[in-house]
């Protein structure tokens, strides 16, 4: 089953190399194809007069890094969510978290027009928490409790409600174009500033995720087991929720809604690695990064010179997978 469950450090290194290769491709390919040697020159012998060097340093590199980071964060958020809720459909985009974050951004666009990237991230985090609490509130209030299918349906409904409200706001205040960008999802035009913030905020949270991963493995076996083994279940859960909200919040604030990354990657990773969350989180991060970087390359290649929204591509990849899971899971519940 779990193909890569042996020699994990080796496979982790291999995945890392795959990621670096994908990022190199992402830097070279685009509206103007740039050779690898030019990329090397731009890094080590930067020439301000050369437009290619400028493009690489100011556009392509931040974009590739942001794509990798966001992919990693979303995949990790999904992994933690699926482990914590023991819900195979757990994914920030299905659970109303990403649309909550985007709703926060829509509001910020109107009432906080001068917001800095950091403030946007804060707002996005609050929005994510808002969306999540709505979905889980509905789940908790419902007869029969939080079944995976109910959570998914509540998430879909609340997402559509929040998207409707955001659209209403955006139409009224004439910012529909900008807000659409957030709902379509893209890492086009990412600034260095945002990359730095992604690293500064996401990095520590990522380490926190790795620290909690052992407890998460226990928690994923079920609450009773976890309590029986003497774990402070509540504490672990709170930390997990915090990690999920921060990771999805900052991702949305930079790249908008990229659906299904947090759904598809954990499932694939689990089938390859097994259920040890210490490795699962790490590998999910790597695979998520690779997936988003590749999807971003596809976004640029499909209809040049147009950019296809990255969110549409991740949906086209992840949607069929969701379909497959829906078919599988829907049968278990009833």
């Amino acid at each position: 089953m779990a193909m890569l469950s042996k020699r994990k450090p080796f496979w982790a290194t291999m995945s890392f190399f795959a990621l670096v290769t994908a990022m190199a491709a992402s830097i070279c390919l685009g509206a103007a194809d740039i050779s690898l040697s030019t990329v090397k020159d731009s890094l080590f012998a930067f020439n301000t007069a050369d437009t290619n060097h400028q493009i690489i340093r100011e556009v392509r590199i931040p974009r590739a890094i942001a794509g990798a980071l966001i992919g990693a964060y979303l995949a990790m958020a999904g992994t933690i969510m699926q482990g914590m809720t023991r819900n195979p459909l757990g994914d920030p985009s299905i659970m109303g978290i990403t649309s909550g974050a985007a709703f926060g951004i829509a509001i910020a666009f109107v009432w906080l027009q001068e917001a800095t990237s950091l403030q946007l991230m804060m707002v996005s985090f609050i929005g994510a928490a808002f969306g999540a609490s709505l979905v889980f509130g509905v789940g908790a209030l419902s007869i029969g409790g939080l079944t995976p299918v109910k959570l998914a349906l509540a998430g879909a409904t609340i997402s559509s409600l929040l998207i409707s409200l955001s659209t209403a706001i955006s139409i009224h205040f004439n910012v529909a174009k900008q807000i659409d960008f957030w709902f379509a999802g893209s890492v086009n035009g990412v600034q260095w500033m945002e990359v730095v913030l992604l690293l500064l905020i996401g990095g520590p949270v990522f380490i926190l995720g790795l620290l909690i991963s052992k407890s998460l493995t226990v928690l994923s076996l079920g609450e009773e087991v976890s309590k029986g083994l003497g774990q402070r279940t509540k504490f672990v859960k709170i930390v997990c929720v915090f990690i999920i909200l921060v990771l999805s919040g900052i991702s949305v604030s930079v790249a908008g809604v990229l659906a299904f990354i947090g759904l598809i990657v954990p499932h694939i990773t689990r089938s390859l690695i097994g259920i040890d969350y210490r490795w699962l989180i790490l590998f999910s991060g790597l695979f998520g990064a690779i997936l988003v970087v590749l999807a971003d390359i596809a976004a640029r290649m499909i209809q040049p010179p147009f950019e296809t929204p990255l969110g549409a591509i991740t949906t086209l990849i992840g949607g069929p997978f969701f379909l497959y899971l829906a078919r599988r899971e829907g049968g278990k519940i009833l």
């Binding site: 299918v149 998914a152 349906l153 879909a156 659906a259 299904f260 949906t315 086209l316 949607g319 069929p320 969701f322 379909l323 829906a326 078919r327 899971e329 829907g330 049968g331 519940i333 009833l334």
Partner: peptide
């Protein structure tokens, strides 16, 4: 419920 869940996935795609 499976019907709706499949529908939700379809809607996303």
């Amino acid at each position: 419920l499976r019907l709706i869940l499949v529908g939700v996935a379809m809607q996303a795609i």
